[in-house]
């Protein structure tokens, strides 16, 4: 149907374009390389836009953190290259992690939080925290266990007593998969209270309908984050049985929430967020980003955004972050082994 000449022409055109493109680029690649060599190695600086991966879709916690940090960095000129936030959603983070691992280099960062421990333990990612370089911890949030305002349970011990009597009588809803954060934070807490955690009833509502199921009286307990619970508690729609912070929090409504420890349950759970890079990131680059994040967290722009989101500063240096991750991993591994969820 099509005439051969035009096909041939197109083919030649393609080949020519491809060859010229690669040819010219190879040389530019080399020159970039030389520039890299010329720089003093102990004073590394980014040479091109930095890709900040949010291993989730737009709008979630990882995405918000990535976008906020990138915005503040650019506003305050702490890093003078562009920080481009790229969403790589899928597999609870696994897709984004695989991307970072494949890409490597000094110009790719990603936002992360406890799922980097849970998802590999669940058997849903081959890559875990040891396959990446911790750069810095940034913020902390805490979990909250919430019941509706007319619930018979008034504190965590009421709930734990009821669960000890019959674990099947109470349904717990969370926004994440079984064996991931919302589930395990609850398991961890009630286990510390002496409940047989193997028989807990956990409903996963991954479309984010957990709160509406609680308000509608479909489930008994909602295991969630502090931020989600605070406004509903302030309006008197729900009761917060416990939060997982190590110390009581300061603030208008949150100061009324009792920690697990205050109620005699020896447990805490920090929902931390921080940045990591690929495994092969140069130590100089790690030091550069570590300092940049530290500097950023002292700016007023950051403090304003942090307060708007209700986040708490939780800076950890690369080394502290790594140690923290290793410890957390061990705790979670034991816990998931016990519940029989580790794969």
């Amino acid at each position: 149907m099509f005439n051969k000449r035009s096909l041939l022409f197109s083919l030649v055109l393609v080949i020519a374009l491809v060859l010229s493109a690669c040819g010219s680029n190879q040389s530019s690649g080399n020159s970039g390389n030389n520039g890299n060599d010329g720089q003093a190695t102990d004073d590394w600086k980014p040479e091109k836009p930095i890709e900040v991966i949010a291993p989730a879709g737009a709008g979630g916690g990882w995405d918000t953190t990535a976008r906020t940090v990138s915005k503040v960095m650019e506003q305050t000129n702490i890093i003078d290259k562009r920080l481009a936030v790229v969403n790589k959603p899928g597999g609870g983070g696994a897709v984004g992690w695989a991307y970072v691992d494949k890409k490597g280099g000094n110009h790719t960062l990603f936002v992360t939080s406890p799922p980097i421990l849970f998802v590999p333990l669940n058997g849903q990612s081959d890559l875990g925290h040891n396959d990446f370089t911790p750069i810095a911890g940034v913020i902390a949030d805490y979990a909250a266990f919430v019941v509706s305002a007319d619930s018979p349970y008034n504190n965590m011990n009421d709930l734990i007593e009821a669960l000890k009597e019959d674990p099947q009588s109470i349904s717990v809803v969370g926004d994440s998969a079984p064996g991931s954060m919302d589930h395990m934070q609850f398991v961890k807490a009630v286990k510390a209270g002496g409940v047989d955690v193997k028989r807990l009833k956990y409903v996963s509502a991954q479309d984010g309908s957990g709160m509406s199921m609680l308000l509608g009286g479909k489930v008994d307990v909602y295991s969630t984050g502090l931020a989600e619970a605070t406004e509903q508690a302030r309006a008197g729609k729900v009761k917060v049985l416990a939060i997982t912070a190590p110390e009581p929090l300061e603030g208008e409504t949150v100061s009324e929430f009792k920690t697990l420890k205050e109620q005699g349950i020896d447990d805490q759970f920090v929902v931390w967020r921080g940045f990591m890079g690929p495994k092969d990131m140069d130590p100089e680059a790690v030091a550069y980003y570590e300092n940049a994040i530290k500097e950023m967290m002292e700016t007023d722009e950051w403090k304003e955004q942090r307060d708007n989101f209700g986040w708490n500063d939780n800076y950890m240096s690369s080394e502290e972050f790594k140690k923290f991750l290793d410890e957390e991993y061990k705790t979670m591994e034991e816990l998931m082994n016990e519940v029989g969820l580790k794969k």
């Binding site: 406004e231 509903q232 708007n308």
Partner: peptide, 17 residues
Amino acid sequence: AVLLGALLVVGVQPGPL
């Protein structure tokens, strides 16, 4: 959910109040 995030950015806590 993304809109909710946008509200947080400008300092409004969305909620029943």
